[in-house]
Computed example of a mutant assay.
Amino acid sequence: MAETTVDEVLAELAALADPKVRRVNEKHGDDHGVNLTQLRALAKRLKTQQDLSRRLWQTGDSAARLLALLICRPKAFDRDELDAMLRAARTPKVHDWLVNYVVKKHPQAEDLRLAWTADPDPVVASAGWALTTERVAKQPAGLDLAALLDVIEEELKDAPDRLQWAMNHCLAQIGIEHAEHRARAIDIGERLQVLADYPTPPNCTSPFAPVWITEMVRRQDTK
Rank of each mutant, 00 (worst) to 15 (best):
I174T: 12
V9C: 06
T5W: 06
A118F: 04
G189K: 06
I176W: 12
Q220I: 06
L42A: 12
L163K: 03
T59G: 05
A185R: 10
T200Q: 03
R22F: 08
V194W: 00
T205W: 04
A84K: 13
R162W: 08
F208W: 12
S126L: 07
E26L: 09
R45P: 10
A11R: 11
D119T: 00
L114E: 15
R162Y: 08
Y198T: 08
H169L: 13
K104E: 15
A179L: 10
R191P: 02
K20Q: 14
W212Y: 14
V124D: 08
D150Y: 09
A17N: 13
A130R: 11
E177K: 13
D7W: 05
K75R: 13
Q38I: 03
W116F: 01
V9Y: 02
I213A: 10
P107D: 06
Q173H: 09
S62L: 07
V6P: 03
E110P: 00
D31G: 04
E180I: 11
A185C: 09
A76L: 10
D61R: 14
Q193T: 04
R162I: 04
L143H: 09
N100W: 11
R135M: 13
E177F: 12
T133N: 13
Q49R: 15
N168H: 10
V21R: 07
R79S: 01
E12Q: 15
A209G: 10
R219S: 07
V9H: 02
D111C: 00
D221W: 00
D144W: 10
F208G: 02
R191M: 06
W165P: 01
L163R: 03
S62K: 07
L36S: 09
V21Y: 06
K105Y: 01
L70R: 15
I176Y: 11
Q58N: 15
Q49F: 01
A64F: 06
A109Q: 09
P74K: 12
H32C: 05
R162F: 06
L131P: 01
D96V: 06
E110W: 03
L145H: 13
L192V: 01
A172F: 05
I186F: 04
L131M: 15
R135A: 14
H95M: 07
M85L: 15
I186S: 02
A63I: 08
E153Q: 13
L86P: 04
R191D: 09
L149Y: 05
L70T: 02
V124T: 15
N25W: 01
I71Q: 08
V103Y: 02
D111S: 11
V124M: 09
T4E: 09
G189C: 06
A125K: 11
Q139K: 14
L67A: 04
L131N: 00
I71S: 08
D83I: 00
D121H: 07
T5Q: 11
C170M: 05
G175I: 05
P201T: 11
A43Y: 03
E190N: 14
R23M: 06
L69T: 06
L171E: 00
R65H: 10
A166V: 05
D187C: 02
E180G: 13
D197H: 15
I188P: 00
A196Y: 01
R218E: 14
D31R: 12
V102N: 03
R90P: 04
P74Q: 12
D96E: 12
E190W: 02
N35G: 11
M167S: 09
K105M: 05
E190K: 12
R23N: 10
D150Q: 09
L46Q: 07
E177P: 00
I188Q: 01
V123F: 07
